[in-house]
Design a binder for these strands. Structure first.
Lengths: 215, 215
DNA sequence: TGTACATCAGTGAACGCGCGTTCACTGATGTAC
DNA sequence: TGTACATCAGTGAACGCGCGTTCACTGATGTAC
């Protein structure tokens, strides 16, 4: 009797080609981001998005098959930015082949991730929609798994160890904890973001410090 | 022009008094939990909930003013269970006045929180709805703040320190990270929950170990 | 123990509204000649 | 440089449906006498 959740098309339809179309496309994403803040995931609709973007609904349907595809595009763009921050940071400090240098600069990573998420309108709401909306959940999971397996591989390589379950889950946990810390810093205004990010980086440092002594 | 998000009534209306009413009330909550799994937060509606609970919609409105109140009741019940787990664990190991004992048993706390969330139908979905749905977000934040300020107070007391911002954010971060770990263990089936919870507890231990040496 | 009655619990029917989606269309843009 | 034409972009109108919410109501439960 349980209704099986139908799979949802998340891919975009027509790509915008002309200048005007690109503005429309961007306008849809901006409107969606604003509405995520103003009315929330549970209330957002293609009608509302089109109205706020100043276009008619069929124009939206030209580019997106449904509202999940809009949220997906929004989420994918933000995750891309976050992943880029991570990769740049990682590559930069890895140059010397010394993991300790990475550890010493965890705060910088958290702060940059925080900044990039904060700069995006509705950044927090987007990230939380990725957690809560089922068709998007898998997108987020896949992205986090990818990043953490890259992390696990490189760390194992530098330390001359095999990529076992232990190191995989350590990497996975690190990524997940990192995002949780950033989200908390965005969400909670009773403590300053800097303080929370500081503490967060101390936590990750302490975690890896033990591993590096043991390994 | 930005639509201001209206505040939403989250409180229940009539409390069920007779036996039959209690069954109806519980049936509403169970139906909502199932639907959270089957159709997701963005699709759940009072109509769907009433239908699945085997009652008519006005019967639901007898107890809840809207769907947010239903989700709120569901979320509050789960957070209560989680907080109870925490408090029992905390009080139990604090008896000897030794924080180290608490640290040594962090895994147990995470595992019990994991279990209690897993046992609730739609536990993960409920927790994520609490994050993503704005009117509920504050409920979750308030609960986490309360628990972490209690933690901060007791820890400061045992260590003979004042409750400063530093210790407050440390406690806050611990609670938030704890829940993030549990949620990841529930969400990701590519790594075993036990392994992830183990790693999670190692992370929290390493974090506090440094604090206790320093303090 | 029986029943009348007050209160509690749930129903059926109705409402206006915004939702997602599609259609045949008009208008804008860019380019081949 | 001008224009005809193909393609791209967006519109207006319409649809059936499920949504939240309310109403006057019937039926169930419990208790005073």
């Amino acid at each position: 009797m349980a209704a099986v959740r139908q799979s949802v098309e998340l891919l975009e339809k027509n790509k915008p080609q002309q200048e005007r179309a690109k503005r429309t496309y961007e306008g849809i994403l901006s409107a969606a981001a604003e509405l995520l803040v103003d009315v929330g995931v549970e209330r957002i609709s293609t009608n509302l998005v089109a109205e706020r973007a100043g276009i008619t609904v069929p124009a939206l349907y030209r580019y997106f098959p449904n509202k999940y595809a809009v949220l997906n595009a929004l989420g994918a763009a933000l995750m891309d930015k976050q992943n880029t921050v991570f990769e740049k940071w990682f590559d930069h400090y890895l140059e010397l082949g010394d993991l300790q240098l990475l550890l010493d600069n965890v705060y910088e990573l958290l702060k940059r991730t925080y900044d990039v998420t904060r700069e995006q309108v509705g950044g927090l709401e987007i990230v939380q929609a990725l957690r809560a909306v089922a068709p998007l959940r898998e997108v987020r999971l896949a992205s986090n798994r990818l990043v953490s397996s890259q992390l696990a591989m490189i760390v194992a390589d530098v330390m001359g160890q095999p990529v076992d379950e232990r190191i995989q889950s350590q990497a996975r946990l690190t990524i997940e904890a990192g995002y949780a810390i950033v989200e908390m810093a965005l969400e909670d205004d009773s403590l300053t973001p800097e303080l929370l990010l500081r503490e967060g980086s101390r936590m990750l440092q302490a975690y890896w410090q033990g591993f590096m002594r043991a390994g």
